[in-house]
Each structure stands twice: as structure tokens, then as C-alpha cells.
């Protein structure tokens, strides 16, 4: 599953990745904070969308990200 930057505002501005709460190969749990992005005046915490393994981070801390852009890939647990 790709983790994408959600639409934070109409006419959205770029955001910057300011904090990853987990690293590649870490197990992640649905609902926990995964990544913090920051716009000019706001920080926004994005939660883990599903239980699984964080296999790849595409946008590292300090990099800019646009709405809809992939930030990471999570290998979802098979139930």
C-alpha cells in the first residue's frame, strides 16, 4: 500500500517532511502516528493506514512533498 500525502487545503501548498516515527523494515500498527509533515504555519500528523511493515520511505526528513505524492510503501499484513 502506498502512503500518499492527503489533501490538506484547497490549492494546497507544498509540505515538508519533518518527522518519521518509524524507519524502513519497522513493523507499523494501524492508527499510530507515522509521519509528520509541515506547511508554513501548521504541522500535520499522518497515521499508519494498516498493520504491516514499512518497506520503503520515498521522502526523507527535510524533503518537500506534494498532495497525492507517494511518501512511503507499507506491506500490509495478510489476514
Amino acid at each position: 500500500m502506498q502512503l500518499r500525502l492527503p489533501d490538506l487545503s484547497e490549492g494546497a501548498e507544498d509540505a515538508v517532511i519533518t518527522l518519521w516515527h518509524a524507519g524502513e523494515t519497522d513493523r507499523v500498527i494501524k492508527g499510530k502516528d507515522l509521519v509528520e509533515v509541515t506547511t508554513d504555519k501548521a504541522t500535520f500528523d499522518i497515521p499508519v493506514p494498516c498493520d504491516g511493515i514499512l518497506v520503503k520511505i520515498f521522502k526523507k526528513k527535510g524533503e518537500k512533498v506534494k498532495t497525492g505524492e507517494d511518501m512511503a510503501e507499507i506491506q500490509e499484513d495478510r489476514s
Partner: peptide
Amino acid sequence: KRDIAFYI
């Protein structure tokens, strides 16, 4: 309304 710029 889920819009951060609107909220600011």
C-alpha cells in the same frame, strides 16, 4: 471542513 489554510 478539512482544510488547514481555511482554518488559519
